[in-house]
């Protein structure tokens, strides 16, 4: 099979999981037809919502030794955020926008452009030494962007962590429960948050966000 790349490096399997661009992927909120809501729905409101579709999402598990940290930094173009609950976002790396979210003491979520995931995976397995795991979860999660004057109020109905700007500054990331599901929540601005949610729960969380935003007005945007 010429069009399937199979690499067994570090005695692990890496496969490209994306077809050619001729086949369009369907994000977890595909059925919600957000584009129509964005064009026809309300244009003003306290909460803004958009789905960043089909990004490349990778879970890195590692307790990085100094050498590994250096290798990872050269691979990502950004240093791994080592302090708990921290993140980095860089718009202009060689592969475009790269975000890294601290998830646990040996776990990070890496977000890259969708078509960069496989290359990055491949380079990781080629380059990174020692014990680690890297798993492509691009199909398993999606990214919501919520913002607006009332976004904090909406989130206070949804997650139990303290969102005060002193306690939850820009750049902080937490994995927490979101309503009866969960999310990785990262503050991108005073009134802007990134929510990484699991595919199967995406519809529930979309319903929840709509409901929790009702009193403030919800504006759907296309990414």
């Amino acid at each position: 099979m010429s069009d399937v790349t199979v690499e067994v490096m570090e005695k692990k399997l890496v496969t490209n999981q994306r077809p050619t661009d001729a086949i369009v992927g369907e994000s977890p909120l595909h059925h919600a037809d957000l584009a129509s809501i964005a064009s026809q729905g309300p244009q003003e409101g306290g909460v803004h919502f958009c789905e960043h579709k089909l990004l490349g999402l990778l879970t890195l598990r590692c307790v990085p030794l100094p050498q590994q940290q250096e290798e990872i930094e050269s691979l990502l173009g950004v240093a791994l955020p080592m302090a708990p609950l921290t993140s980095v976002t860089k718009d202009d790396t060689s592969i475009g926008k790269v975000s890294v979210r601290w998830v646990g003491p040996d776990e990070w979520l890496i977000i890259v452009p969708g078509d960069e995931a496989f290359d990055l995976e491949t380079r990781f397995f080629e380059t990174l030494s020692g014990h680690f795991s890297l798993v492509n979860i691009s199909g398993g999660s999606t990214v919501f962007d919520v913002s607006g004057d009332q976004v904090v109020s909406m989130l206070k109905k949804s997650i139990p962590v303290d969102l005060h700007i002193r306690e939850f500054p820009v750049g902080k990331v937490v994995s927490t429960i979101f309503a009866k599901s969960g999310a990785i929540v990262c503050r991108l601005g005073e009134n802007q948050f990134e929510l990484v949610v699991r595919r199967s729960f995406a519809d529930y969380l979309w319903l929840w966000v709509q409901d929790a935003s009702r009193e403030y007005g919800l504006v759907v945007k296309t990414s």
């Binding site: 994306r18 086949i23 369009v24 977890p28 089909l54 691009s138 199909g139």
Partner: peptide
Amino acid sequence: VQANYGLH
């Protein structure tokens, strides 16, 4: 298959 292509 990656879930984004499952329905396809």
